[in-house]
Design a protein around this nucleic acid. Structure first.
Length: 296
DNA sequence: TTTGGATGTAAAC
DNA sequence: TTTACCTCCAAAC
């Protein structure tokens, strides 16, 4: 379930709590035993997110490549040094739904593994457990480069050196295909990091019908989608959740689940812009939400 | 207590 | 286009 914003938060978290440290790497569940043995005892040097893929770089050009899939999640714990190092609020779990760290216990080392822990990373001050990932591989530098070459530009790379033309590249990939724009926004080779929620909300905000072929989009429409994706995903990194509605439309200081979106899971409710009932249909095996009244 | 669906993707038909 | 992956949780029995 995590879209690009969650994976970016994970990359930040790994950098904050583990960068530069030697890690014990194990696979309590056993399914990653061989890969864990390759990485065990190496120092973590880098932590990168590209779309929904997480790449943890260890000494010796060794990498841990993780994709959370639908329900994967990382859980973290440690002493005050560890939780205090986190710049994103010391979350206990980052994945399908974030859980805050209660932080009430005195740290006495990593707990006995509970459930199917695919990977456990342990430093002097804390630990991280991975469960339910759809991908978890030990990789070399060339493996990582090959995986990243399959991905389109990531709206969260805004402002990084070498990414000045990412918006143009997105527009080129989007506008060159006759596939529907609803499908293209979910294609990680067109744009990396967008999932079902951002897809629905971006097209609604742009007033674009998801059924339109990519080739029918104007340069301005493509540029607008890219700029809005940059903004919405950056907001998601900051907030730790996807929110695409405005503060004035919420009942409280933070939106309830249903208040955070305009169309996602709003089927049958009136469109906030034109009053037409929000529609729902399946597209390529995923649920597509849109307003037939004002998305053209 | 069981079922089904989920912010995802690849492989099999 | 459908199935499998393999986890959590809410809704239905």
């Amino acid at each position: 379930m995590p879209e690009g914003h969650s994976v970016r938060r994970l990359a930040i978290q790994f950098h904050d709590v583990f960068a530069g440290q030697r890690l014990a790497v194990s696979s309590p569940q056993g399914r990653f035993a061989a890969g864990a043995a390759l990485l065990d005892g190496h120092r973590l040097l880098s932590s990168e997110a590209h779309g929904k893929q997480l790449f943890l770089g260890f000494e010796g050009d060794l990498w841990l490549h993780v994709h959370l899939g639908l329900y994967g999640a990382w859980e973290f714990g440690g002493d005050e040094t560890f939780t205090g190092a986190s710049s994103i609020g010391a979350p206990r779990r980052i994945g399908e739904r974030e859980v805050a760290d209660s932080g009430e216990d005195v740290y006495t080392g990593p707990p006995a593994p509970v459930g199917a822990v695919r990977v456990r990373l342990v430093s002097e001050h804390g630990w991280a457990d991975l469960r339910g990932a759809s991908r978890c591989d030990a990789a070399t530098g060339p493996d990582v480069a090959a995986a990243r070459a399959k991905l389109g530009p990531d709206p969260l790379h805004r402002g990084l050196p070498g990414h000045e033309r990412d918006g143009d590249e997105f527009a080129r990939r989007l506008r060159s295909r006759r596939t529907s724009v609803g499908q293209l926004l979910m294609d990680q080779g067109v744009v990396a990091g967008i999932g079902n929620i951002y897809r629905a909300e971006l097209l609604f905000r742009a007033g674009i019908d998801p059924a339109r072929p990519g080739t029918s989009l104007s340069a301005d429409e493509a540029a607008g989608l890219w700029a809005d994706a940059e903004r919405l995903l950056a907001d998601g990194v900051r907030d730790g959740r996807i929110i695409t509605t405005e503060p004035g439309t919420w009942t409280g200081s933070l939106p309830e689940e249903h208040e955070a979106f305009s169309v996602y899971q709003h089927q049958g409710s009136p469109c906030p812009r034109c009053g037409t009932d929000i529609a729902l249909r399946e597209l390529a095996g995923r649920k597509l939400y849109w307003c037939p009244g004002c998305q053209h």
